[in-house]
Each structure stands twice: as C-alpha cells, then as structure tokens.
C-alpha cells in the first residue's frame, strides 16, 4: 500500500523556496564590480544565487521522486540526496562562494540567513527521512510487526 509521504512534499516546498529566495524573497544585488582592466564581473552573491538554483532544483527533484519511491533502499538514497542538497545550500553562501561583506547589504542580511535556514531545514527533513527509510529496511525488527 502506497504511504503518503509528508517528507516528500516538504522537501519539494523547501527546494522551491531555496530557488526563489535569492531571486524573489530576498533578492541578491544586481550590480557588477568593476575590474582593474575596466570590465565588470558579477558579485559573489550573484553566483551564490545561481548555485541555489541548482541546490534547490536538486532537492525538488529528489522530493518528487520520493513521492513515488516505495523501496526503503531507494528512499534512503533519495533522502541522502536531500540531505546533501541542504548542506550545499548552507555552504554556498558561507564557505564555498559567499555574499557581500557589508552587513547591511541585502544579500548579507537577507539572502544569507534565509539560505542557511532553508538549507538547515532541508538537512533536517532529509535526515529524518533517511532514518525512517533505514528503519524500514529488511532485517530490522520493528515494534509490533509480526
């Protein structure tokens, strides 16, 4: 019997928020930086936003697959993917790429904490689903199941 997966829905929602946050909810700075050679390059927050498109998309795809996946092993794998997407979401604006240094810049005071929060929540959901999937795998005794 197919069981309703709240975790999958929540993952899809979080993934969508990760995608939308740097472009809609807490948009990053649009301006470019002038280089010494006279050209202009986007700022760090621009690339963080791009990375969030990928990380959020990954979470959404994994969430969508989790809606249909019944096999506990498969669910464990997909949940681990969700966890990884969440981790990348946290790392992108902090350790991997970064945002503008100014504390009152929109990307620093809005986008960065929002992505950290969404990434953290995605990791929690992923971990919970992985734990549940591991418990359901064959060979593990379950309370009350003959």
């Amino acid at each position: 019997m197919k069981r309703f997966s709240w975790g999958a829905f929540v993952t899809i929602a979080l993934g969508a928020l990760i995608v939308l946050t740097p472009y809609g909810v807490f948009p990053v700075c649009e301006a470019a930086v002038l280089t010494a050679a006279g050209g202009s390059v986007p700022m760090k927050c621009f690339w963080t936003a791009r990375a969030s498109l990928g990380n959020g998309g990954l979470a959404m795809a994994a969430g969508f697959l989790l809606l249909f996946a019944q096999n506990p092993g498969l669910r464990l794998g997909l949940a681990s993917l969700v966890l990884a997407a969440g981790l990348l979401t946290v790392l992108a604006p902090t350790a991997l790429i970064g945002v503008c240094r100014g504390e009152t810049m929109p990307c620093h005071m809005g986008t960065l904490p929002a992505l950290m929060l969404l990434g953290g929540l995605t990791m929690l959901v992923g971990a919970a689903m992985a734990f549940k999937a591991k418990k359901a795998m064959p060979g593990r005794a379950c309370r009350g199941r003959a």
Partner: peptide, 13 residues
Amino acid sequence: GVLMALFKTYIGV
C-alpha cells in the same frame, strides 16, 4: 532564537 540570530541585522534595519 534561530530566526532572531540569523536575521538580527535585517530586523534591526
């Protein structure tokens, strides 16, 4: 606590 810590600058502004 988590929200206040993460968004303290935003809230202040």
